[in-house]
Design a binder for these strands. Structure first.
Length: 293
DNA sequence: CTGCGGCCCTGACGGC
DNA sequence: TGCCGTCAGGGCCGCA
């Protein structure tokens, strides 16, 4: 499930590879993947027409969205959902099953979008549309300049929803999914079902820093390959070896040894340490960690 | 506005 | 062994 670090890993590879290159042909374009982006829709013929022969200005990321602005204006929008892969391969590569978009790019090979579950999307924002963050009301970039405790505090203020749900809400903060919301809450030693508006300023500060910590850690490891994710070369990431709680239900907590629990919170499965992330456990467990590590 | 439940879709997995 | 039911999960939509 590609989240911010995985999408950013893909972007970082694709940007220099595709920047300034021309799309020679659109070989596949599955209409079932074509979905409106904040009300801006398109059609297979229209998208095929605008992409064919167009030069790619850059490969950009906003939250979990990739956008490819074209030199003629407008931008291709790609989202990988939970099973999507975006791989740059050599010319003439046979598409894998469930390949929904193939761009033949002059001098760069072929860009294949493959997504078995089709939770991803292909969209188009015309030149006159606002940038995708504004179109979708996305929250701040947690690895950008605009992210700090004050920004997070304003977005949590007055909210009764559990932290888990708020971190997954792309309007609160852009780019977190199930893995990094769990990891950030563990890093901050906060229970996933704590109402967002109940946090103390110290807790908000811990959470804001924790989000950055877990994202940068994953980025340094090439992303997390828990199930489907591969980078733009088709290689898995290594961050799954560094996850503290996600996918570790029933295994010992790396900080205290208690068993990691998993439970549905806000409609999603949250993984957490009941001891480290229990009510008021933040400062106490941090002291224990100093003693044991 | 806010929170929540349903829907999409397929592969993986557990039970019989 | 093989079939089948269940579930996960990002984002969106509709409902209360």
């Amino acid at each position: 499930m590609p989240e911010l670090p995985e999408v950013e890993t893909i972007r970082a590879y694709l940007d220099p590879a595709l920047r300034g290159r021309r799309i020679r042909a659109v070989l596949h374009l599955d209409p079932r993947m074509l979905k409106p982006v904040g009300g801006w829709g398109t059609s297979v013929p229209a998208l095929r027409r605008v992409l064919t022969g167009a030069c790619i200005r850059a490969v950009e990321r906003r939250g979990k969205f990739l956008t490819l602005p074209l030199e003629v204006g407008g931008r291709l929008v790609l989202h990988l959902g939970m099973s999507g892969r975006l791989v740059l391969t050599g010319p003439g590569t046979a598409p894998l099953p469930h390949t929904h978009l193939v761009l033949e790019v002059a001098g760069a090979g072929e860009l294949h979008l493959t997504d078995p579950r089709r939770f991803g999307r292909i969209g188009w924002l015309p030149a006159q549309a606002p940038e995708i963050g504004a179109v979708l009301g996305l929250g701040p970039e947690p690895l950008g300049d605009g992210w700090d405790a004050g920004v997070l505090a304003r977005r949590l203020a007055g909210r009764r929803a559990p932290l888990k749900a708020l971190l997954l809400d792309q309007r609160v903060v852009a780019g977190l999914g199930n893995i990094y919301s769990d990891e950030a809450l563990f890093e901050a030693r906060l229970a996933p079902d704590r109402p967002g508006g109940d946090l103390t300023p110290d807790e908000v500060g811990r959470l804001a820093r924790a989000v950055v910590t877990v994202l940068q850690r994953s980025l340094a490891h090439g992303g997390t390959s828990f199930s489907d994710y591969v980078d733009a070369l088709g290689h898995p990431g290594r961050n799954q070896e560094y996850l503290q709680v996600y996918g570790r239900a029933g295994k010992p907590c790396p900080a205290c040894g208690s068993l990691v629990a998993s439970r549905s919170v806000g409609g999603r499965t949250a993984h957490f340490c009941p001891a480290c992330q229990g009510p008021g456990a933040g400062w106490a467990v941090r002291e224990e960690r100093h003693a044991t590590v």
